[in-house]
């Protein structure tokens, strides 16, 4: 009530002044050391004997400008693919993790399948999954085989679904058994307990690693170019081949980083919030 009226004592005023001086000192120190490191790096790179040639073949403004539209167009494909694949992979991961918690002999085959799936696809390199899906599945010559884009996307979903399932499972197992006991004692069924008590707590707890895997996925979306669709990486590759200049790769790389920044920002924010909540709850 009287916090506005409270006058800090002599000692507290001294503490505040001291902390302020310390803050100013550390800001100045940080600025100085950043400047020193920056200048040293600059000198090291631009002073290197091959710098002029590297600048020519990696940082050519004309080449960058010429290929930017195609790369951007390709990036739009990456963005759409990312959104769809991330959504599907999260759903698949949650489903697999939930299946693995089912008890009872009836569910043995389901559990075994789910476990086998996570073991296999966490070990299998994504590139191989993409090749198998994009070139192997059409080889079967089945009726209605989807295009390579869908098959490549499916490879991403299957692989990331396995990672995300493990993240979800860790979250589910981190919910204390006493929470289950409390929910069951209220008469909630197993399904209601999972849906209202276990999963909400589990997902909150693993939100940071889930988002982190989504950032990884956003990079790996570029790998579908191996199967043929013209995404940002493939567009850059075409540019590199035509102009005999690596600048388009740099352009695509910068765009990927820019695309990831918001997602990384959200991840950091969520992580920080989770950490705060933990320390407040303890």
């Amino acid at each position: 009530m009287s916090t506005e009226l409270h006058q800090p004592s002599e000692i507290q005023r001294g503490r505040i002044a001291y902390r302020r001086r310390q803050t100013i000192r550390s800001v100045l120190l940080a600025a100085l050391s950043t400047a020193v490191v920056g200048v040293l790096l600059m000198v090291a790179v631009t002073g290197a004997p091959g710098w002029d040639r590297v600048k020519q073949s990696f940082f050519s403004p004309e080449v960058a400008w010429r290929w930017l539209p195609q790369i951007l167009e390709g990036l739009w494909l990456n963005v759409r693919l990312l959104v769809v694949c991330a959504g599907l992979a999260l759903a698949l991961g949650l489903l697999i993790a939930t299946l693995r918690t089912l008890r009872g002999p009836v569910f043995f085959p389901v559990r075994a399948l789910a476990t086998g799936y996570t073991y296999t696809f966490r070990g299998l390199p994504l590139i191989i999954v993409i090749y198998l899906m994009a070139f192997g599945v059409p080889g079967l010559r089945l009726q209605g085989t989807p295009g390579v884009l869908v098959l490549g996307g499916a490879a991403l979903v299957i692989t990331y679904g396995a990672y995300l399932a493990e993240v979800f499972r860790a979250g589910i197992e981190s919910v204390h058994p006493s929470q289950l006991a409390a929910a069951r004692s209220l008469g909630l069924t197993y399904r209601q307990t999972m849906r209202h008590v276990v999963l909400p707590q589990a997902i909150r707890r693993v939100a940071p690693p889930l988002l982190n895997d989504t950032v990884a996925l956003q990079k790996d979306v570029g790998l579908v170019s191996l199967a043929g669709p013209i995404d940002a990486v493939r567009a850059a590759q075409i540019g590199v081949a035509q102009d005999a200049n690596y600048t388009p790769y740099i352009v695509a790389g910068v765009l990927f980083v820019l695309l990831a920044l918001p997602l990384i920002g959200v991840t950091d924010w969520v992580t920080l919030r989770a950490a705060r909540r933990q320390s407040a709850g303890a």
Partner: peptide, 18 residues
């Protein structure tokens, strides 16, 4: 589940849903 609906239980550590 049907039996537990007729019995209430309170635990030492409260076990509220956080």
């Amino acid at each position: 589940d049907e039996v537990r609906q007729r019995i209430g239980m309170v635990f030492q550590s409260y076990n509220l849903f956080p």
